[in-house]
């Protein structure tokens, strides 16, 4: 159970970065940390003690062998990781565009968002 709590604490650290930081780059870093902790949490839930990686090879090619870790959350998280990269890249592109226009990453000085 302490592993789950540590994972959620990592989520809270990311949430702190998103809510309290005034720098756009640090907000992006906080979002990415939150995303990583959620991915890790899903994989932690699907872990089976002593289970093998879900690849049928060698002696595990036998049909009767079923002591694998859960392949379903792994497949979902694989999708989530790639989507996370895409969203992070989009956020960073917007951040560098804002820097070119305003000359700062400070979100308090980016007020007139017109045009």
């Amino acid at each position: 159970m302490i592993i789950y709590l540590l994972c959620i604490f990592l989520f809270l650290v990311g949430l702190y970065g998103v809510v309290a930081k005034r720098n756009l780059i640090k907000i992006v870093i906080g979002l990415a940390i939150m995303e990583y902790s959620v991915n890790l949490f899903l994989i932690l839930i699907g872990y089976v003690k002593g289970g093998a990686a879900p690849i049928r090879s060698g002696e595990m090619a036998d049909k009767a062998f079923t002591n694998f870790v859960d392949p379903l959350p792994q497949a979902m998280v694989l999708t989530a990781i790639v989507i996370g990269l895409a969203t992070t890249a989009l956020l960073l592109a917007i951040a560098i565009r804002i820097y070119k226009k305003y000359g700062t990453f400070d979100i308090r000085e980016i007020k007139n968002l017109k045009g």
């Binding site: 994989i43 932690l44 872990y47 990686a53 870790v69 792994q74 694989l78 990781i81 790639v82």
Partner: peptide, 11 residues
């Protein structure tokens, strides 16, 4: 460590 080699490669 959690037996997810595909995820480790992608990550």
């Amino acid at each position: 460590l959690l037996q997810a080699p595909d995820l480790a490669l992608v990550q």
